[in-house]
């Protein structure tokens, strides 16, 4: 088990529990009562910690190395899934995956950022930082969905679009802009879920939709707290402050009306019970798709455009 800094009290309790169990296993002393008590304390401590998380702690949770990623959710949610590759122009990006699947009898197209599950895979997936061909693959699959009338599910989990030489050469900005432009008018439902990190243009590049939900311990903003700290505070040391200032949690985003829904995570975060998390996510995705499908296509697009057109607050000087 990996414990985050703010989970230290939990780690201690788990260590105690291990020791007590060892003693109990020797069979000399009956430790059952102590074990029970410790387990109770673990539950309570976890509840205490998790019911009062700061912005920065949620950012840490969203990056937890054991957190489930897109392909895990796809595997759990779809009985059948065929992964599709390539943007048809340049290559196949590994940081954005996508394909066509069957979710309880309904064919859907699912796209999403994919992070690696171990050191080697993290590199292979470029840490979930997509190149232009990733955004173009996503668009190709969305267009495929449109052609055949399949709803689109987009799972967001990226520390940002990749800022490399080749990404710039191949038009990172154009690829993201094009997606926003095309997703605005896509004639099938688009449901998005932030399942981890929602960093800036790299996130919204596949994140424009009729219904956007955020898992409870995720974040979504224009910049990561670290980069924000380095630019505005001119030091990397103010990430906690930056995280608070950016108001980037699911709760904040929901209160601003920028996302439609917060999806509850199990106590201890999505990684503590990933299968349960996948079940909840699937249920909410299906519900959202069904609600959008009640509308006519033209109404759906009009509502989608009006929703984004209404975001932002301005005033007029007297």
């Amino acid at each position: 088990m990996v414990f985050l800094e703010f989970e230290k009290p939990l780690e201690k309790l788990y260590e105690q529990l291990e020791k007590v169990k060892e003693v109990g296993d020797d069979g000399v002393v009956d430790m059952d009562a102590t074990i029970q008590e410790l387990e109770g304390r673990i539950k309570q401590t976890r509840r205490d910690i998790y019911s009062n998380l700061s912005g920065w702690q949620r950012v840490q949770l969203s990056r937890h190395p054991e957190r489930p990623y897109t392909l895990y959710y796809i595997e759990q949610m779809c009985r059948k899934f065929v992964e599709l590759h390539g943007d048809r122009y340049y290559g196949d990006d590994k940081a954005i995956v996508g394909g066509i699947g069957n979710m309880d009898g309904q064919t859907v197209v699912i796209i999403g950022h994919q992070k690696g599950v171990n050191t080697k895979m993290r590199q292979y997936r470029n840490f979930g930082m997509a190149n232009p061909e990733g955004y173009r693959k996503a668009l190709r699959l969305m267009k495929l969905a449109e052609r055949f009338g399949f709803p689109v599910i987009s799972l967001i989990d990226t520390p940002g679009a990749f800022p490399g030489i080749e990404a710039e050469e191949r038009g990172q900005a154009e690829a993201i802009a094009r997606n926003l432009f095309e997703m605005a008018q896509l004639r099938v439902p688009i449901v998005c879920a932030v399942i981890g990190e929602g960093a800036s243009g790299g996130a919204i590049g596949i994140g424009l939709g009729d219904h956007v939900m955020m898992l409870e311990n995720t974040w979504y903003s224009v910049i990561s707290p670290e980069s924000c700290s380095s630019i505005l505070w001119r030091s990397w040391d103010y990430k906690e402050k930056a995280a608070e200032a950016l108001k980037l949690t699911a709760e904040d985003m929901h209160s601003f009306g920028i996302v439609e829904e917060i999806v509850k995570e199990p106590h201890g975060g999505a990684h503590s019970a990933p299968d349960e998390m996948a079940k909840t996510l699937k249920r909410q995705l299906k519900k959202a798709i069904a609600a959008i499908q009640e509308k006519s296509v033209d109404q759906m697009i009009e509502d989608r455009i009006n929703k984004y057109a209404a975001i932002g607050q301005v005033t007029h000087a007297k």
Partner: peptide, 11 residues
């Protein structure tokens, strides 16, 4: 303007 500024890309 954090998320509000990000959403202007979509808008």
């Amino acid at each position: 303007e954090a998320a509000f500024s990000l959403m202007q890309m979509a808008k």
